[in-house]
Design a protein around this nucleic acid. Structure first.
Lengths: 341, 341
DNA sequence: CTGAAAGCGCTTACAG
DNA sequence: CTGAAAGCGCTTACAG
């Protein structure tokens, strides 16, 4: 392995203390002679000294690492979030440990414990476990934690979400205003607050437009094997209510699969006879479904706020007379893009 | 913070040694009495003991963490790779530290040093620095390292790549066979071996088809601000050679931008008068450009091989009388999908 | 101006 | 069957 402080100290007949001070830039403050300092620096360079950050962390209790737990790393939304969070974190000197929960509470809880054991300074998580058991324990124990995308009612952790209800409502209201009457909703993970809010926005828009919320137009898709499930669900809805004239998708993943379904079934979505709307988006939606309206999620803001809230918590928890601050939460508006005008 | 071994030892009037042995499952082997063992276990549970993995790593020299350095975390290709690598790694008990180099050699080198300092057990990297200075140093110093996507000629690290030359060649040959004569190439990062191979495959296919490699049909796009650059480049090519009848894109990112360009310019790509081909793909290509042929990258295999090669190196480096094994490399074929028949 | 010493929380020879 | 001790590589009071 590489050289250690001790190696340098031995070689120079100095104490580890002196070497440590010089190398950590406290040479002047501690009054180490200029000559000694340059000797240390030169020796460190010649031995290609790199500090063992594990040792430093063990000593200081600060790992300069944050943990990020996502339902899926490859989902474009989460991948972009991870990208931005990594940049923001890195700018502040933090590295990122990342893991995918696959939306399984068991895995999520195991990952939380693992990250704590690895002594991350804080955790950013898009929780899959609506019960939030482990997340709650995390916050209680004083570990800095910020939730995003999905908030948990019970937990008093910091949280960053978009205004799901407003976004859904705006999309569905727009569909209704364009004259679509039988608007189906395709959704998943209905037990998550996020998804419930999107459903609620849909229902409110229907009610305001004087439309009946036909249960036959409710399509719920299980996450595992969702590709097939989307097809089955659309088949079922179109068979039961053949004159369905609109679809509201609660995620871009569901919309993507539905577009493939329409394409494969030869259902034309370009003539505007079908009203389409989707929470979040994909760069290619504009081409593959030019008339689908979307509520874009502000990925940059979400990431920036998440990191900001977490760093604030971390700083508070590391400063001496710290009282745990009231956890701050942020609700961000979607950027609406109505595309069928 | 949480309880430590010492806390348990004190509480039970035992030594840290005994507690450590019981908790690490060596109780029977070390002949600790059943009663002591259950007292330790019970106490650990009641104190919610979780081992400090930093301390363990510092002691054992094994961090059970691997570093992943990608040009971009949000690029769908790399995001999928990260997802798979994380799964594979987790299954073997490893966590993932992830970072984006933004294809900047300086950042990449800094990240490599940082990860080494954080004592990752090995690094998987899609190198941006064609010179491979830091990567070479890494391999020489005995740190397990596996490259993927982009190989470096000089380095003797393990490597996993697709057959770039064959994939490009097959795509362009196919375009030529369909009768397209003026096939442009749109590429980026031309100094990277990967991209050079894709260019070479293009050139070979042209030559074999008796087509002239018109330099005016060569479009090179800078990474920074590539959106605008793609448009400018296509503008330039179509202005210079108005009867350009084919486009070969060396990455899915470039193809995506080009599709937007065609869409915005009102250029019809659905009638088959323009031959299109692309290295890698996007799930929505089938809808947005149904006739574009693609060479799909085997993401799962790439990830599986990368992790496998890295773990092998890690095990060798950790086993006692280890001679550094000859670094193994893997070349995987693309999955061709010719879509315009 | 510089150093000896304790400690972060583990693991693991070594000793009894 | 159990424990005292050293060590992983740092940082940081404390002392001179």
């Amino acid at each position: 392995m590489g050289a250690s402080l001790k190696d340098i100290a031995c070689k120079l007949n100095l104490s580890k203390t002196t070497v440590s001070w010089v190398l950590s830039g406290q040479g002047d403050k501690k009054g180490i002679s200029a000559e000694t300092q340059s000797r240390v620096l030169a020796c460190a360079r010649s031995l290609a000294y790199e500090p063992n950050l594990l040792a430093r962390s063990l000593n200081t209790g600060v790992s300069k690492t944050i943990g990020l737990i996502l339902p899926s790393i490859s989902d474009t939304f989460f991948a972009h979030i991870a990208d931005r969070i990594e940049s923001e974190a890195e700018r502040e000197g933090y590295s990122l440990m990342i893991a995918g929960s696959n939306s399984e509470p068991e895995r999520e809880n195991a990952l939380i414990r693992l990250f704590r054991s690895k002594k991350v300074d804080g955790i950013i998580i898009a929780p899959a476990d609506a019960s939030g058991r482990e997340v709650g324990r995390l916050a209680e124990s004083g570990c800095p934690v910020v939730l995003f995308d999905r908030c948990l009612a019970k937990t008093d952790a910091g949280c960053v979400v978009i205004d799901n209800e407003a976004g859904s409502h705006a999309l569905v209201r727009h569909l209704a205003a364009r004259g679509f009457r039988k608007i189906a909703i395709i959704t998943t993970f209905p037990h998550l607050p996020t998804m419930e809010l999107r459903h609620r926005g849909y229902l409110r828009a229907l009610a305001e437009a004087g439309l009946h919320a036909d249960p036959r137009l409710y399509g719920e898709v299980a996450y595992a094997g969702y590709r097939q499930h989307v097809c089955d669900t659309l088949d079922r809805i179109l068979a039961t209510v053949p004159d369905t004239d609109g679809f509201f998708f609660t995620t871009h993943i569901l919309a993507t699969e539905a577009l493939r379904y329409f394409h494969d079934r030869g259902i034309d979505i370009s003539d505007g006879r079908l009203g389409l709307a989707c929470m979040h988006e994909d760069p290619l939606f504009r081409l593959a479904a030019p008339r689908m309206s979307v509520a874009r999620f502000p990925v940059e803001e979400i990431s920036a706020h998440a990191v900001r809230l977490l760093l604030r918590q971390i700083r508070e928890s590391q400063s001496p007379g710290s009282v745990r601050p009231a956890p701050e939460s942020v609700v961000l508006p979607c950027r609406m893009e109505f595309r069928d005008e």
